[in-house]
Design a protein around this nucleic acid. Structure first.
Lengths: 132, 132
DNA sequence: ACAATTATCTGGAATTGTTCTAATGTGATA
DNA sequence: TATCACATTAGAACAATTCCAGATAATTGT
């Protein structure tokens, strides 16, 4: 399958820069920040700008192809794995582990203040084996 | 009970500025940002600086008297309610509702990668009645 | 294949939230 | 009430993100 075929369903204009970003994200489990992506893709495209990284991330987000995570208060992090899962974070070293368990999180109607609840995300926190 | 008595257990030096911030936070369910606090307390203390707001928030956080929330990717928000609870957020207007239900979120040991799991926070998301 | 169209890329400036700094001021203690 | 450790202040510095306007390049229709 060509690169173009692989990403055509995204319906975004495929530039070499975007393909490099998509390549970096594919299967990436490190929950990278924009800077992580910029640093890596810059090696191949020395003229890469942050604007392009953010533009591409925004495009992918709007196509539901990546998740923007709020687990790091200092900066946004991105996750190319859009299947429902949760995160476990070390309070000390900030290591992030994916948690793919499912939980029963039904909320009784009278607690939701008229909201239509469409999803959830659990952040577990604790100490990793290195920091204990 | 005097103001001093009320906050003595915090073991922090009680200045008028800090007392004003504590007063603003007391019972506050709006999950305010540093700027929200600054704007409000500035009315009473026109020379208030952001450094004081952040200093005080940091002091309160280290005494486990407030929670720093990550529910807003743009800025930190603070919650003076430190009893365990979760949040429900409207994807459109970002309205935040507190959820005080408890859930069974036990993780089997073999999923936690050697972590000591000490807590969790659930973010529910959806659409509020105004935005539906 | 090519020109036209339309969106993207780029470098840098601007903006926003947060932290730092160094001088001054003040709450708590003895 | 004097002392001193700590808090306050204004503004500078910093870091993440967004904006801008001109140059460039991917797609579309021919």
């Amino acid at each position: 399958m060509t690169t173009m075929e692989k990403y055509r369903h995204l319906n975004i204009k495929l530039t070499p820069q975007r393909i490099a970003i998509l390549g970096y994200l594919e299967g990436n489990k490190s929950h990278p920040s924009a800077e992580d992506i910029y640093k890596s893709v810059s090696k191949e495209f020395p003229t890469m700008s942050f604007a392009t990284v953010y533009n591409t991330l925004e495009a992918l987000k709007s196509k539901d192809n990546i998740l923007e995570l709020k687990i790091d208060p200092a900066k946004k992090r991105y996750d190319p794995d859009t299947t429902p899962h949760h995160h476990l974070i070390c309070k000390d070293c900030k290591t992030i582990v994916d948690i793919f368990s499912e939980f029963n999180l039904d909320l009784s109607k009278d607690l939701t203040d008229g909201f239509d609840v469409t999803g959830n995300h659990i952040e577990f926190f604790g100490k990793c084996s290195n920091c204990k």
